[in-house]
Design a protein around this nucleic acid. Sequence first.
DNA 1: GTGGTCTAGACCACC
DNA 2: GTGGTCTAGACCACG
Lengths: 135, 135, 135, 135
Amino acid sequence: MWLPIRIDEQRPEPLYHQIEVQLRGLILGGQLKEGTLLPSIRELAVSLKCSAITVRRVYQDLENEGLIRTRQGTGTFVAGVEPVARDEHRLERLTEELGKAIEIGFQLQCSPEEIETAFRQALDRKSTERGGDAL
Amino acid sequence: MWLPIRIDEQRPEPLYHQIEVQLRGLILGGQLKEGTLLPSIRELAVSLKCSAITVRRVYQDLENEGLIRTRQGTGTFVAGVEPVARDEHRLERLTEELGKAIEIGFQLQCSPEEIETAFRQALDRKSTERGGDAL
Amino acid sequence: MWLPIRIDEQRPEPLYHQIEVQLRGLILGGQLKEGTLLPSIRELAVSLKCSAITVRRVYQDLENEGLIRTRQGTGTFVAGVEPVARDEHRLERLTEELGKAIEIGFQLQCSPEEIETAFRQALDRKSTERGGDAL
Amino acid sequence: MWLPIRIDEQRPEPLYHQIEVQLRGLILGGQLKEGTLLPSIRELAVSLKCSAITVRRVYQDLENEGLIRTRQGTGTFVAGVEPVARDEHRLERLTEELGKAIEIGFQLQCSPEEIETAFRQALDRKSTERGGDAL
DNA sequence: GTGGTCTAGACCACC
DNA sequence: GTGGTCTAGACCACG
């Protein structure tokens, strides 16, 4: 079992957070279907070259969110996600993040037009970056 | 001397960071002109109900960025910001923040169209919120 | 982990500055190679007999300069310094310091010849002092 | 009575220190002869656009050094300086400053040759700068 | 264990 | 009055 998760040491972001975001994306995005057996904590820790305690935290957080389930002695599985709940979760989260960025723009005295221009620029840039990724 | 800065205890974000963002916004946004005498460290600390050391850190960070200048025994002043540099700085910063939000969207498997929809929603919401602010 | 840093209580110079200068010297001088794990804040504070906050400030300043990198929960590491940048930095810094001293000389109405004589004297003195150091 | 003293607001150096260095230079350099009446504290404060308390400190420090003398109700005068003491003072001070700079060079792992090169460069640069000054 | 933030209060240097 | 440094100790987040 292997997961397409990458850690970027350069970012100031905590390790556990980077992993959570990516694993959550894989589940909410549908790449990992309900019932899929995830790698063990130790396994994933080794493959990500990080501490087991960090992976443990990731699994625990996602279990609290109801995205995965742990069964004693068996392993950790992807839980079922209702498609509707999935879409809600995604859009809510996204709108929240965009809202933060927009607020910063307003604080810098940007007009809504400037913000929209910047948005188009950022979206284009990220789209091409993403297109170039090896998936 | 009084500054329109508000602290939100609820946010997990560090105190000093909240203050920095807002004060930086006031300077880069042009509300505080070059040469303006800022409130003393102790004064601002009292009005924000936080420690003088926290305010000191804010002033020091902004001085390192070249936005303000301090002289012992005299006080802290707004440094000159070249209008061009200001505009560059603003758009650069804004695009960066929007980029972060967009990246999170992609990680959640959102399509560019969904992201754009969310952006319009967030922009509308923040615009009306802002319209209601007392300026 | 131990660092050859000494604090001179007598000097009017701030503690944090003395430590910064010496640690910066160790990194730019090449004694501390890229990736080296520095002593923890608390550890260094004990060994220098100063407050942890003072050491923290040193580490933070050097991180702002890009000389070291810190990760929460992990520790503080020496960042990569490009050899060319290092040499440039060194000579630039040195010339700057010598310039300050020379300017003081001129203000005291010393002739260039007198300054040169004083320089030879100072260089000889420091060279022999240095030769006597335990390295 | 007017003195060729300039204050540079940009420098982090304390005001009183900038003034002291320049006034001391004028006396030790012989531009101000023994017995010369200096401007009053208030006069000098106005012409330098600084606080009278700052000028007071300058006069007091220089009086402690024996370079000037104050006579109640009469004013402040330049004291006599023995030519030998003058030369000693100057060279001692200069050698000390150069020593500091050299020490920094050694800490950066510069060889004596590199230090000498940097010295020549700095001396040339400062000499030409000085040549261009309006005196 | 590590670093990151924050406090309250001291003492100093400067104007 | 101002800013600048330093301490001792608390609490949190991370690995």
